[in-house]
C-alpha cells in the first residue's frame, strides 16, 4: 500500500475545481471590498505607515477600530 494508492482512491480530482471556484470567489470578494467598502481615509492612513518611523501611533490610542470610524 502506497500513498499514491490511498490518494487514488480518494477521488480528489474534482477538488481542484472546488478550490478554483473558492479562489475566484474570495478574489472577487477582495475586489468588491476594495471598490465598494474600503474608505479613503483608512487607505491613506495605511499608505503612510512606512513613512512614520518613531512612534507612529495616532493621537488616538489604540482602540482596535480603524481610523474610518
Amino acid at each position: 500500500m502506497r500513498l499514491s494508492d490511498i490518494m487514488s482512491n480518494m477521488h480528489l480530482s474534482h477538488w481542484a475545481q472546488i478550490a478554483l471556484v473558492l479562489f475566484m470567489a474570495i478574489f472577487l470578494g477582495v475586489v468588491l471590498y476594495l471598490v465598494v467598502f474600503a474608505k479613503r481615509e483608512t487607505m491613506d492612513r495605511m499608505a503612510r505607515m512606512p513613512l512614520d518611523e518613531t512612534n507612529g501611533q495616532q493621537a488616538k490610542p489604540n482602540n482596535g477600530g480603524g481610523a474610518d470610524e
Binding site: 490518494m7 480528489l12 481542484a16 478550490a19 473558492l22 479562489f23
Partner: peptide, 13 residues
C-alpha cells in the same frame, strides 16, 4: 486550496 489543486495531479497513479 493549492494542495487541492496539486495533490490529485501528482498522486493519482
Amino acid at each position: 486550496a493549492s494542495l487541492f489543486e496539486i495533490l490529485p495531479t501528482f498522486l493519482i497513479r
